[in-house]
Write a protein that binds this DNA or RNA. Structure first.
Lengths: 241, 241
DNA sequence: CGGACCTTTGAAGACATTCAAGGCCTGTGG
DNA sequence: CCACAGGCCTTGAATGTCTTCAAAGGTCCG
């Protein structure tokens, strides 16, 4: 059974809040749900889960590893719309029009659970708590997206990076991993696309954070040295040098 | 009964695709649904529908007028996350955590239908098509949000404005109104917040569009003179000045 | 008529981008 | 094992877009 955790902490994330525990599912219901969830064999790095235009069949929960969702916009550039870590659910973008709007690929060796929507839907019809839970999951994606909108619309490069790093830190912590030593599965280019910046800017801001001893950066390994400084960065328009 | 239309056309919108017609609801189901939808008395301009922190009770459909949703971010500035026009549904932001994350207010004299979620949920349990429809509605909000994310992350001021104007134009057309002569219910400040720009930039870009004969602008009345030019603007990185 | 608010416009400045070059790491083939 | 090609990341300098600051014109409403 894939296990998740409670509550998203900031933007960037839409967690499955433990499909098992908190919603009053009894063992029987749980078993039914578990029954049709498919554990696919691990995905290789860059391997796709679904592609833009594919017919919508399922949503997915990350078990281990990480996923990025993106689309190609009119001028041919890849636009990343989300990163998903263990315990988080992705794939709702296909529901509205019965085909996926985005492409989802693994950033590293990753395993996901496939949850066929047809069956989830049927199960939801017989078990209201499942239905209600599903709605909350989707709604959570909306909240995460809208927080990202606020971030993109109203923040500086430093604030954006800071927000993303803190979010990943929190999400890693939920997996029981260190919240200060984190490993970024995505490239600088993917970060920059997600945050609406350029690679150079991402690189420079990371350099700046490092010089200020907020972080220590070693390629994709980041150690957060001063979490409070990063948090402060986000709550004020004026900033320490 | 509030009536809606099919398919969102771009970002910025999450339409209710006619709660009545396309989903195989029979007259009976329809009656049940209609029964508990509350038509509230018209809202005055700036009057609130719900406020950030209020307990979640309902989603709302715009019948006439327009709504903006926004939150106040850490530095006290208002961050607009969406505009909603007739036929569109808002309020899902409250579902995940059982309280509204945003504040929703009327931009003009506006009437909305209140759809109590508790009852909608119960109805959904007995009528699967309603349930399924509800999921699609939410999913549509996700798609709209993600398109907005792509717009905010990857576009210039001109592209952002252009995208918003075209979207409003299309949505107005769905109401049977002119798609070229449109009236903006929101202020420049609200537009700028939504698009992640400043008022001055919005004003300048509108001026620029006007000088280029893409638009004719008279305060909140906009006439689109060259829709293709606006569309072209969005699909190329290089542009005719 | 007066004041508040919204909008426009200008000039200066900041922040992020663009362009360019070099470094580092990885994998491949000699 | 080393050489080399190709990513990816970093750094610098110049440019540009958007913002900030400032002021003035409009409009609405008392």
């Amino acid at each position: 059974m894939f296990v998740g955790f409670e509550r998203p902490l900031s933007c960037h994330s839409c967690r499955i809040s433990s499909l098992c525990l908190p919603l009053g599912l009894n063992a029987d219901d749980l078993y039914k749900l578990d029954e049709f969830i498919q554990r696919k064999k691990p995905l290789q790095p860059r391997e796709g889960v679904y592609f833009s235009g594919d017919p919508f069949t399922s949503v997915y929960a990350v078990r281990s590893g990480s996923i990025k969702c993106f689309c190609i916009d009119s001028d041919g550039r890849e636009q990343v719309t989300g990163f998903y870590f263990p315990g988080e659910v992705f794939g709702w973008d296909g529901l509205a029009d019965e085909q996926y709007q985005k492409t989802a690929i693994a950033l590293e060796t990753t395993s996901v659970c496939q949850i066929p929507y047809e069956q989830l839907d049927e199960l939801g019809n017989s078990i209201p708590s499942i239905q209600r839970y599903m709605m909350k999951l989707i709604s959570r994606e909306i909240n995460a997206d809208q927080r990202l909108i606020a971030l993109l619309a109203g923040s500086s490069a430093q604030q954006k990076l800071s927000s993303l790093l803190l979010s990943i830190s929190d999400r890693r912590a939920l997996q029981g991993l260190s919240s200060t030593r984190i490993w970024l599965p995505m490239s600088r280019g993917e970060i920059s696309s997600y945050l609406g910046l350029t690679v150079e800017t991402v690189s420079r801001v990371l350099g700046h954070f490092q010089r200020n001893k907020y972080l220590s950066v070693n390629k994709k390994e980041i150690e957060i040295l001063d979490k409070q400084a990063l948090r402060d960065l986000m709550h004020s328009t004026e900033e320490v040098e």
